[in-house]
């Protein structure tokens, strides 16, 4: 099975634990080299966060476990890159 190298997730999480703790904890998972979390919407009790994870061999299951353990919910998987290297989506004529 190919190795996951980049995953972009749309999540909903409580304000606490903060994205600092979440990013730090996700980055400690094996096979992950970098994590980026950005908040794009804040509600009274919760916030929407876009989580971008890159690594050599990302375990989606473990990522999901950490997010859920911290009270977050994955709304959608917005981008996935798997294989020997990271590639971005190619431009097409329609773009």
């Amino acid at each position: 099975m190919g190795k996951l190298r980049r995953v972009v997730l749309d999540t909903l999480k409580p304000h606490e634990p903060s994205i600092i703790e979440m990013a730090s904890e996700l980055s400690e998972l094996e096979g992950i080299t970098a994590v980026n979390i950005s908040i794009y919407e804040i509600d009274r009790k919760v916030e929407n966060a876009k989580i971008t994870i890159e690594g050599e061999d990302i375990s989606y299951h473990h990522v999901m476990e950490v997010i859920e353990e911290m009270g977050g919910v994955i709304h959608s998987v917005d981008e996935v890159v798997a294989g020997k290297k990271i590639i971005d989506d190619a431009d097409t004529l329609q773009d």
Binding site: E16, K45, E68, M70, G71, V73
Partner: peptide
């Protein structure tokens, strides 16, 4: 319970 209603998940068995 309030927070669980916001996230639409049961948070009782999480770190929170």
């Amino acid at each position: 319970d309030q927070l669980s209603r916001h996230t639409l998940t049961d948070l009782h068995d999480t770190r929170i």
